[in-house]
Amino acid sequence: MGKFCNTERMEVHGADGLLGEVEEAEAALRSAAARDLSGEASFDAIIAADQKIEPRDVMPDAYRKGLIRQIAQHAHSEIIGMQPEGNWITRAPSLRRKAILLAKVQDEAGHGLYLYAAAETLGITREELTDALLSGRQKYSSIFNYPTLTWADMGAIGWLVDGAAIVNQVPLCRCSYGPYARAMIRVCKEESFHQRQGYQSLYVLAQGSEAQRAMAQDAVNRWWYPSLAMFGPPDAESTHSAQSMEWKIKRFTNDELRQRFVDMCVPQAEILGLTLPDPELRWNEERGHYDFTQPDFDELMRVVKGDGPCNRQRMTHRRRAHEEGAWVREAAQAYAKKVSVQ
């Protein structure tokens, strides 16, 4: 084998604890399936009993619509998220890193597929979802509207962006909607793998040459605040939170999750020997948490509305792939029709 640091077995603390929660959610899901209240119990009773709503169950229209919006946004994020990392596959600096990155971006496409399938159980089609993304009616995570300028961004994204995604998504493994919870369990297991690989890749850079180290620090400087913004607006301004908590779609508030992420990252940054770009970052004994500077939420809003550095580029790229692939999809349909007639 070629030369690389022996960081394969290095533990990323925090992420492992979260993975334990994924396993607990999986066990809970199995016991919920065994009890199977559905069919007889009302929506409210199922929610109150912490059981799963399944596609055949009666559910309030707002629950259905809210879930479609959330799952679709999540699926779109996986798909658009392929672009910033896809940007470095052809230039990956070793064959081993190339294989890891290629596999990771492929996983993201797979996540998009599971999530679209989960959304489809709520009575919407892939075509409708694709159309909603391409027309801008549905959003994707703003984090993917930032550019990947150096190779170190692959490490920083894996560590911080996949890390933030895990913190956000682990509680969704216990979400009240069965198909979403099941999709999230699969997704979270892979995301934790991504986070570990990103962290290791960044670790190698941080221990490397002066230029590599500078590249790693610069990437962390650029990705830190956008990663904090991934948890959404502060609780006081969050529009969907309260109802989602009541329906057990969401289990923690945006601010709680953001704090959890910061608390997880600080010791990891210390092991990396890299500095998180926040002079206010310090342990607060009284709270039992780190104090930190909030991300710029005005910037988040500008990016959500379409004026981030790469919004236009990402959407143009996606539309172009879709449009230039139209003749291929039509051919597949036409051929399937011919075969079924024969």
């Binding site: 596959i89 190339k98 492929q106 496409a109 996606r318 291929v328």
Partner: peptide, 29 residues
């Protein structure tokens, strides 16, 4: 093949082409 990532006509095909690229890379290595 890896140039196709995020550009295929369907999501399924994106996965398939990346998979083939990975296999080719694996044999090359």
């Amino acid at each position: 093949l890896s140039e196709w990532v995020s550009r295929a006509p369907t999501l399924e095909e994106d996965v398939a082409l990346a998979n083939i690229a990975l296999d080719q890379l694996g044999v090359a290595r």
